[in-house]
Computed example of a mutant assay.
Amino acid sequence: MKKIVFLSLMFTGFCAFSQIGTRLPSAQIGDSKWTFGGYAGLGGAFGSGGGGTTLYITPRFGYKVTEDFEAGIAGNFSWSNSRYYSSTMVGVGPFANYYFSRSFFLSGMFQEYFINQKDKVNDVKYSGNESALYLGGGYMQRLGERTYMQIGGMYNVLYNRDKSVFAGGFIPHVGIVYGL
């Protein structure tokens, strides 16, 4: 059971982390303080190992409190299904980003996850919730007038290896941000 959960979460994480995210442009013309966007990913493993499909969506809605500080709410939805295992996770919580020198950023995000998993081989089900407090940061490279590439990572400081459904506490990320 633990091997299946570990492999499925690793697969989900790999698919999620390998995607490029985009913060969508403001809905208003001009210098709006609202930011909208998120990340999305779709992955699959095919072959004799059981195959599988993973979908990952993380919308976020923020407000630029100052030119360098953004706060808002983020959500996420991930769904995985294979011959041996299925999982659905929904998370929601606040986030804050501080940008300095338009080259670096610090980030914090709290997520409350609601989890449903099923081991199809042993017919074992799990439903529960887990809290995560991610702290991290990274580097931003300017790509255009209002477009940046972000490379960084976050660590869940509440991660407990013995109690968590997640395979690890560290989350690397790469994304494209528009509208900063």
Rank of each mutant, 00 (worst) to 15 (best):
G43M: 03
K125E: 14
M140F: 00
F105D: 05
W34Q: 11
F100Y: 07
T22V: 12
L106H: 08
G138S: 11
A45D: 09
R83P: 00
Y98N: 07
G108V: 13
F77A: 07
W79S: 15
G72L: 09
Y139F: 08
G47V: 00
F100A: 07
L42A: 14
G75R: 02
D31L: 02
K2R: 09
V165E: 11
F170V: 10
G21Y: 05
V177G: 06
A96V: 09
L24G: 03
G37A: 11
I115M: 04
F110H: 09
N97C: 01
N116T: 15
P172N: 14
F110T: 06
D162P: 08
T22E: 08
N97S: 07
G50E: 06
Q19T: 14
Q117E: 07
G50S: 13
T12P: 00
T147Y: 01
K120L: 00
G175H: 01
W79Q: 10
F17M: 12
S32Y: 14
P59F: 06
A45F: 03
G93T: 06
G144Q: 04
T53V: 14
N81Q: 06
R23T: 15
Y159C: 13
I57T: 03
G30F: 07
V92S: 12
T22A: 07
T88G: 01
W79T: 15
V5T: 10
T53G: 14
G153Q: 10
T66L: 01
T54Y: 00
Y85W: 04
F77N: 11
I29E: 15
A132R: 06
R60S: 11
E112V: 12
G91W: 04
T35R: 02
E67C: 06
A27V: 12
G62M: 11
P25R: 13
N122V: 05
G13T: 10
I176W: 03
